[in-house]
Every structure is written in C-alpha cells, then in structure tokens.
Amino acid sequence: MSKLFTPFRAGALALPNRIVMAPLTRNRAPNGTPTPLMAEYYRQRASAGLIVSEGTAISPQGQGYADVPGLYSTEQIDGWRRVTRAVHEAGGRIVAQLWHVGRVSHVDLQPHHALPVAPSAVRAHTKTVLIRDGAPVFVETSIPRALDAEEIPGIVRDYAHAARFAIDAGFDGVEIHGANGYLIDQFLKSSANHRSDDYGGPIPNRARFLLEVVRAVIEAVGAGRTGIRLSPVTPANDIDEPHPQPLFEYVARHLGPLGLAYIHVIEGATGGPRVREDRPFDYDAMRTAWRSHGGDGAWMVNNGYDRALAEQALEHGADLVAFGRAYIANPDLVERLRRGGPFNTPDRSTFYGGGAHGYTDYPTLADAGGQ
C-alpha cells in the first residue's frame, strides 16, 4: 500500500491516512455563523485523514472577508458543533484554523467601520471580498493603523479564547494561521513590520508575536492539539521578506521544544509556483532546525501536490500532505487518489459565496456508480 494511505499520529490526532484537506475560504457563513449547508460540505469530505477548517476569525477585528465564519460567539460555537458532529459521525477528524487577517481587511468588515490593524500602518496592495446585493465583490483593502504595544496581549488572548471555543465546539484541535500575509505573517516579515519596539526589527522581535500566540494556544488546549501554518516565501497579500531562511529557521528552532502536533508549510507561492527563483528557500533545513530542537510532531507540506509528488514528499521527510483546490470539486478525494482518478473540475465562479451549487453538489465516484 502507498504510504499516502497509511495511518499516522500527529500529537493527539490519530489519523487514518496522510491526506489532509487544506483550509479553503468559501464565504458561505452569513454573520460569521456556520450553517447546516457547511455541515454537509465538511461531512462529504470526512474521508480525509484530517480536515483543516476554512480560516475562522478569532474576533470581529480579525475578519477580513465577507461571510467567513468566526469563533467568538455562542451562535458560532453552536453552528460549528453541527459541523464537527457531522464530520465525526462520518468517521472524520477536523481542526479549526484560527485566523486574524490584520491589514487584509476593509473598513466595511470592521466593528464600527474602524481601520484594520497591523504591525505598521502599511497598506496591503491586495483585494478582499465584500457581499453587495447578494453577490461577491472584490475591493481594495483599507489602509490599516499600527497596533499599540498595549493592544497586542489582548489579541494573543483572543487566539487562546478562540482555541478554547473550538474545543467546546467539538473540534479535535486547532491550527494557528501564521501564513499568507495575515497578521502573524505581517509581524514576521519586514515588508509589513516597520516597528522599532520589542515586536519589530531583529528576527527575535519579529517572531515574538507568533511565539506568544503559540504558547497561549498551547496553554489553552494543549500542544498535542495545536498546529501552525507557515509560508516562508509566499508573496500572497503583498507580503515579502528578503531574508526568509534565517527567519524561518529561527522560528522552527523555537517551535521545536513546544511539542506541536504539526507544522503545516506552504512551499513556494501560495496557489502558484512551488519554487520562487527570486526567493530560494531550503525547506529541509527548516525541518531539520525544528527536529533538532525537539520538534516531534508531523511535518505537513502543501502547494500543488498530486499523488506522485505526495508520495515523493513522504519518502523524503514529510509526514502529511495537504490538498486544497482538489477538495473543492472532489469530496471523495482520498478514493480518487487511491484509484488514480478521475477527478472533477472545480467551477471557479462558485468559489466565493453562493449556496449548494459548486459547494455540495459535486458527484462522488459512488454517485457515478464507481463502487
């Protein structure tokens, strides 16, 4: 049997295979509250070894896109309980991705139309999604304001509160979103972090916020139920770091002793080339830095994987492989990978917002008489 389909343990998470459903924002949670339709969507994909939920805002301030779910109200916890119950009844495992977008937001999405917050008042030249007249509209992000140092501990507490709410809602664990140009990544990378205090400048200062968040979440729910997602060289959401290797090896060394269930690494440009010629990066060196400092959880890889690449990665040090876009159109992706296809083609027009069409109506092999 291919290693891809063998069981694996990541911290407290006992997984039936090494195929992970990556987080996928779908903008189908009005008022930030998961719906029964979302429960069906995730239930359909429960054969994954692990599901990582779509990005889920830790607070109203953390929201950056219309109709994305949150984990800060009773209604949201109740909605997520329907989702986790459906996944568990189908034999699956699911963790909540904890998300604060930082500057990648718009005043129309912020409480009282306030400015988004960021390490520094540097605008992200990217777009976000609003819902207008029932349809998704892409708009430029708003100019952020720089966080006062006194505000930062409150955001760290928001991560811990959301982690506790996730466990209350039935999730098997949490993944801290530290990638793709959102708040934690903004603190890490010098293009977005121009601070001169203890959270800016040298690498240890820029990594301080990430490590404070990780420690707070571990204290809240346990290291064995905590993972983190990182993207060393992605340019997503107008983020950049001219010297990613020393930065992320430092992060890996300091995450090592904390006992995380896994580190989830996006290789190359998110949704784009797996190798950036202008930002070369040695992922093996980063993994070695983590392992050599006590990191004994799973090393999860992501970005543009098919079965052949996944099997190659597992033979060269990876433990888990995350699949993103393929899961949009193939709820039974595990079985399709096992058989070598066929694979449904996703309808891009239904990615963001809408209802069941392009969400829960993709056929499985069983629907097509393939069993």
Rank of each mutant, 00 (worst) to 15 (best):
residue 349 S to E: 09
residue 162 A to F: 04
residue 354 G to C: 09
residue 138 F to C: 03
residue 92 G to H: 08
residue 241 E to P: 03
residue 279 R to A: 13
residue 278 D to A: 13
residue 132 R to A: 07
residue 345 T to S: 08
residue 192 A to Q: 14
residue 137 V to D: 11
residue 316 H to W: 07
residue 266 I to K: 04
residue 37 L to M: 15
residue 163 A to W: 05
residue 84 T to L: 11
residue 341 G to R: 04
residue 1 M to P: 06
residue 223 A to W: 10
residue 367 D to F: 10
residue 106 H to M: 06
residue 202 P to F: 11
residue 90 A to Q: 11
residue 324 G to E: 00
residue 268 G to C: 09
residue 217 V to M: 06
residue 161 H to Q: 14
residue 74 T to H: 13
residue 66 A to K: 00
residue 90 A to N: 05
residue 267 E to N: 09
residue 178 G to Q: 10
residue 321 V to E: 01
residue 200 G to V: 12
residue 354 G to E: 11
residue 202 P to Q: 13
residue 36 P to Q: 10
residue 144 P to R: 10
residue 370 G to K: 12
residue 311 E to W: 05
residue 341 G to T: 02
residue 130 L to A: 09
residue 67 D to G: 00
residue 327 Y to G: 00
residue 264 H to E: 06
residue 223 A to F: 12
residue 186 Q to A: 06
residue 197 D to Q: 13
residue 337 L to Y: 00
residue 319 D to K: 03
residue 221 V to I: 15
residue 205 N to V: 08
residue 244 P to D: 08
residue 157 R to S: 14
residue 191 S to L: 14
residue 296 D to W: 01
residue 166 A to H: 03
residue 110 Q to P: 00
residue 317 G to M: 12
residue 153 P to Y: 09
residue 29 A to W: 02
residue 247 L to Q: 03
residue 62 G to I: 01
residue 208 R to F: 12
residue 255 L to N: 05
residue 64 G to H: 00
residue 192 A to K: 13
residue 183 L to A: 05
residue 364 T to D: 05
residue 33 T to D: 02
